[in-house]
C-alpha cells in the first residue's frame, strides 16, 4: 500500500524572518515547480513549511542548493466529498484503530471533492492505508500530485 499511495512531502525549516516564505516560493517558481498543497506550522521563533509539489525530486535539489534545511517525509492523501462530515469520517476510522495523526491539512480539489493529506507515525502508515481503504475511503495516488 505504501508503495502505491505514499506521497513525498517536503518539510522545510524556516526562521520567522521577513521574506523567508517569499524566498522559498520564488526558488520554486524559478524552477517551474508547481505547489499542489501546502501547510505552515509555526512557533514563536521558527516554522515548518510543508509542501506537496508536482516534482519532489527537483524541488528537493533546488531548495537544498538554495541552502534550505529540509526533510523528505512520507505522507498519504485521501479524497472525500466536499460536504459536512467528510473529514470526520476519515479521522473517526483512524481514531478507532488507534492511529495517531501527527498532522493533517486539506485543500479543495476540483468539483465537489476535497483532498486531505495525513502524516501518521511511519510504522502506522501501512495500517492506516488498510483501514481507510476497508472503510470505503478513496485513497489518492501520487500521480494526482506529480507530473
Amino acid at each position: 500500500m505504501i508503495r502505491k499511495y505514499g506521497i513525498k512531502q517536503l518539510s522545510i525549516f524556516l526562521e520567522n524572518r521577513k521574506g523567508r516564505l517569499l524566498e522559498v516560493t520564488e526558488a520554486l517558481k524559478d524552477a517551474s515547480i508547481n505547489i499542489r498543497a501546502l501547510a505552515l506550522a509555526e512557533s514563536a521563533e521558527f516554522g515548518i513549511l510543508r509542501l506537496v509539489v508536482n516534482n519532489p525530486e527537483k524541488a528537493r535539489s533546488v531548495l537544498s542548493s538554495s541552502g534550505f534545511t529540509l526533510k523528505e517525509q512520507d505522507v498519504f492523501a485521501v479524497e472525500v466529498p466536499d460536504e459536512p462530515g467528510g473529514f470526520y469520517n476519515v479521522v473517526r476510522i483512524l481514531t478507532e484503530n488507534d492511529i495517531n495523526v501527527d498532522y493533517t491539512y486539506a485543500f479543495v480539489g476540483g468539483g465537489k471533492k476535497a483532498v486531505l493529506i495525513f502524516k501518521v507515525p511511519s510504522e502506522m502508515v501501512e495500517k492506516a492505508l488498510d483501514v481507510l481503504s476497508q472503510g470505503g475511503i478513496t485513497l489518492v495516488e501520487p500521480m494526482f500530485f506529480y507530473d
Partner: peptide
C-alpha cells in the same frame, strides 16, 4: 544553532 538536514525533525514539538 543551525538546524541542518541531519538535525531537522519535522515537527514543531520535536524542535521545541
Amino acid at each position: 544553532v543551525e538546524v541542518d538536514d541531519r538535525t531537522f525533525a519535522d515537527g514543531i514539538g520535536a524542535l521545541e
